[in-house]
């Protein structure tokens, strides 16, 4: 493993498999009466969250505590950022207190790379702007592997706001790396330019995109990032791209439905699909803790000996 986990792009297939296999072992710890191992005893992990995130922050915190790390979460409100201290200064101040790892969530793409360049601590990217959310993609892959026992050759269709989604970028990189056929689908106004160069197929017809899919992954329509008029109304979006039972019926009978959360019911996904038998949305959340334990454990080891290589 490298020093930091910034991007799926930095991981080899072997490293991804190692993380997923380790996740398998970590998941068992969560099923014990005493859900704690002493592995990261004496290690300090700082969760630096510049964006509100209940799910990801909680998931990291639980993962850290289950590995016995000393953990503290610093929610940095936007207002205090505006008052002055730069990300670099905040990070250097935290560094001065000798943490071992920093988990960073930030609204700017590349924020984790910036920290990686100035910090000795291991940096884990917990979502940077519209760039990547690597641990989400890893937990998605783990969940798919659980259900399908493979990733290679699967048809995975990702539907939603492709443009603003960091989950899309991490998932597209990871799933194509492991040999899945990935189709991404959304309104033409929300398709990132050149995305097909990642090896994904782009479609603007959801009916066509979900046909014969093994996995349907929905992306949140992020009202808060919709500064332009990307589509006329939520109602029209749902009618054109929303995942309904009728659309799910076009996929394979054993299709699974995934969503990174938080869901907008009645926008990108109908409630009866979210709560349906093929939905693995809550499993994703459960697996998130184990994946993050695996990442924390693997990153806590020695760095690849770059001098020797």
């Amino acid at each position: 493993m490298k020093k930091d986990l910034l991007s799926i792009a930095d991981l080899s297939c072997e490293e991804i498999t190692l993380i997923l296999d380790t996740t398998e072992a970590m998941r068992e710890i969560g099923q014990r009466p005493i859900k704690k191992v002493p592995t990261l005893r004496g290690k300090t992990v700082v969760n630096l969250f510049y964006e509100p995130s209940t799910r990801t922050r909680t998931s990291f915190e639980i993962a850290e505590k289950r590995l016995s790390a000393d953990t503290l979460s610093i929610p940095v409100s936007t207002s205090s950022v505006l008052k002055g201290e730069t990300l670099v200064d905040t990070a250097l101040n935290i560094e001065a207190m000798q943490p071992d790892m920093i988990v960073l969530r930030h609204a700017s793409s590349g924020a984790a790379h910036l920290l990686s360049r100035i910090c000795r601590s291991r940096i884990i990217n917990a979502g940077d702007g519209m760039h990547e959310h690597p641990t989400q993609a890893l937990l998605d892959a783990f969940t798919i592997r659980e259900h399908k026992h493979r990733i290679e050759g699967l048809k995975v269709t990702i539907v939603g706001d492709l443009l603003h989604s960091r989950v899309l970028r991490s998932d597209a990189l990871l799933l194509t790396k492991l040999g899945a056929q990935v189709c991404v689908c959304g309104p033409a106004t929300l398709v990132p330019v050149g995305i097909e160069r990642l090896g994904v197929r782009v479609s603007t017809s959801v009916d066509e995109a979900v046909a014969d899919a093994d996995v349907i992954m929905l992306l949140r329509i992020q009202h808060e990032r919709m500064q332009g008029a990307f589509f006329p109304s939520v109602r029209e979006y749902f009618n054109t791209f929303g995942m309904t039972k009728a659309r799910v019926a076009r996929a394979r009978p054993d299709v699974i439905i995934m969503h990174p959360g938080p869901m907008n019911r009645g926008v990108e996904i109908a409630s009866d699909v979210a709560d349906g038998p093929y939905s693995v949305i809550l499993e994703q959340v459960a697996n998130g803790v184990a994946v993050r334990m695996a990442v924390l454990y693997l990153l806590a080891g020695g760095v690849e000996d770059e001098a020797a290589a």
Binding site: S109, G110, G129, M130, H131, E132, R166, V193, I195, R197
Partner: peptide
């Protein structure tokens, strides 16, 4: 241009930068 920060293309798209 809006709030773009980089050339709109593959690299800005994959890095999550507004084009």
């Amino acid at each position: 241009k809006a709030d773009g920060v980089a050339h709109e293309g593959f690299h800005a798209s994959t890095l999550g930068l507004r084009g």
